[in-house]
């Protein structure tokens, strides 16, 4: 009786919290559970989930990627610019993903083979990429100094808003990415090496594992996934937005941490991050249904991080 419950709790520690959040909001906010709102919830969470998969991998190798939000924004802007200029949507989407991969490889080379500190390295790339996104958006939208969103070609919004069997297209993409990420982490030798390096990088080196190469690949994959998140964002909004990534970083880190992946590396997983991301978005949707604003969201986000960490501490204390 107790055992399956404990096992579920262990695999998805945020699941009961998500349930409580949804129940509470459905009681205080009428209309919270109607299908349109649920669809919006899934749509909103898609970009976050995709970007968080990469971030989870980075956390597992006991690293940190602060550039994830900027890369999401830059990728969406790139996709919009390239698609707009060439008239070829596919080319734009590829360009967006390539931008993410390039930043990821750069982060990875600096942190892996060159051994720079992840915090410092990705702080630098956060700043540079963010500035580049704003500058190119400003030039492309022809607004000089103030950077606005760059519109995607017409017809794109159809995919971004579309649903299949009531499930938003973008959410289906997100779930596909989650499945691939789970396979990568749990079923490949690379995924195993990620966990081993994250748990003890000295022992990994003594076991003949190329720690630098594992790190390089992890950051490259994280960049790639941030790029994918960026084009999904562009498809969903119908535009590339340089400002979109500003609180994406906070959301991504929050999703990974409250999901239950250790900041210190080694332990954690992909699926638990999904529950973390859904919890954040469920709270945000609820707040917006109640008519509360962005700054209130930040307060709630902060409280959620602390409660989530406390929750994991209590849980691990009780369960040994």
């Amino acid at each position: 009786m107790l055992r399956p419950i404990l096992r579920t709790l262990n695999a998805a520690p945020m699941l009961p919290v998500l349930v409580v959040v949804i129940v509470v909001f459905s009681l205080v906010a009428p209309g919270y559970l109607n299908p349109a709102n649920i669809q919006n919830l899934l749509r909103d969470s898609s970009v976050l989930i995709i970007a968080s998969m990469g971030a989870t991998l980075v956390f597992l190798v006991s690293g940190l990627d602060l550039s994830v939000g900027s890369v999401v924004a830059a990728s969406s802007v790139t996709a919009a610019i390239v698609a707009g200029q060439s008239g070829d949507l596919a080319l734009g989407l590829v360009a967006g993903v390539v931008v993410g991969l390039l930043v990821g490889v750069l982060n990875g080379v600096l942190i892996g083979p060159l051994g720079l500190n992840p915090f410092v390295t990705t702080l630098a790339s956060l700043l540079v990429v963010r500035a580049l996104a704003y500058v190119s958006a400003a030039i492309a939208s022809g607004q000089g100094g103030t950077a606005g969103a760059v519109a995607m070609p017409d017809g794109v919004a159809g995919f971004g808003r579309g649903v299949v069997l009531g499930i938003p297209n973008v959410f289906i993409v997100a779930i596909a990415i989650v499945v691939l990420s789970v396979l990568l982490l749990e079923k490949t030798t690379f995924g195993r090496r990620v966990r081993l390096v994250g748990q003890n990088d000295v022992a990994a080196a003594f076991a003949g594992i190329s720690v630098a190469r594992v790190r390089l690949l992890v950051y490259a994959i994280a960049g790639l996934l941030a790029g994918v998140a960026g084009i999904i964002l562009a498809l969903r909004l119908g535009s590339g937005s340089p400002a979109a990534g500003d609180d994406m970083l906070l959301q991504v880190i929050t999703a990974v941490i409250i999901g239950g992946t250790a900041v210190s590396g080694g332990s954690g997983g992909m699926v638990r991050t999904v529950w973390g991301a859904l919890t954040i978005v469920a709270i945000e949707r609820g707040m917006s249904v109640l008519g509360l604003k962005f700054y209130d969201n930040l307060i709630v986000l902060g409280v959620v991080i602390l409660l989530g960490t406390l929750f994991h501490r209590v849980k691990s204390g009780r369960m040994g």
Binding site: R195, L196, Q199, N200, V202, A203, F206, A207, G266
Partner: peptide
């Protein structure tokens, strides 16, 4: 420090 991945399973 150099050999064991302490929190990882025995098999790994």
């Amino acid at each position: 420090l150099e050999q064991a991945f302490l929190q990882r399973p025995i098999a790994e």
